[in-house]
Amino acid sequence: MPPWLDDFFWTYQNLVYALGVNGLLALSIYVVLAVGQLSLGQAAFMGLGAYSSAIMTLKFKLPFLLVLPASCIVPVAFALLIGGPTLRLSGVYLAIATIGLGEVLRAVYLNIDWFGGALGLSGIPERAGIGSIYGLLAAALAVLWIIGRSHIGRAMEAMRTDETAAEVMGINVPRYRLGALLASAVLAGLAGALSAHVSSFIGPNEYGFEPAVTILSFALLGGIGTPIAPVLGAWILTLLPELLRGLADFRLVFNGVIIVIAVLFLPNGILPFRLRRHGRP
């Protein structure tokens, strides 16, 4: 590899990691939006994955091959815990209840010294990389794509369009909802573990209200017709601030203006297409 190319990859390494991690987070919000659930616990799940994996690595010295799959355990446990009660909620009520979860956890990280308090956890070794991040992203995309084209995907779409009708059609709505929430927790937990193991430091303020809204915006900008759409949305929103560095003081202004224009002209997302399915109508 010529040195300039080496420099190039070094320079953008973190950005490339962030694109992959945010892609996973976009899929995490996609799976709940795809069943018509405005559940915004992704940042909280990501935090649980990040903190639990960092503690496994730092305090228990476990190998990453074990830590990565284990990082889903805590988020999934929480998803099961909140699943029953919160799934009765809908729309913005569910959104706020799940954002509330993130804020409660933030207070827990801050008040318990074992989690490092405000200082967070630092010195996390770099164990993840392009391979693990993009491998998982590709696998998640493939699985969701296949599910989307199957009868499960059709049921999900039915729930999204009209929940009552879906129920009448014999779709077990609560089971799908819980399944989506668990899948969302797994994806976000993995994203948290991966990001913790590429950036050496995690802090309590990275998983609250603002990241929850940012993750939602990935899917809103990209669209939720296909799994690739929210990932594209995540990539655009992650790249924009870096592409706009030349604008200095006004880069956040343009960042916002570009989002406004994109949504005004493409209100269903940048990729508004739906998955094609064969077989029974």
């Binding site: 420099d7 190039f8 070094w10 320079t11 953008y12 390494q13 973190n14 950005l15 870096e242 560095r245």
Partner: peptide, 8 residues
Amino acid sequence: NAARKLIG
């Protein structure tokens, strides 16, 4: 990202 950009 900023630090990597400045160095790289």
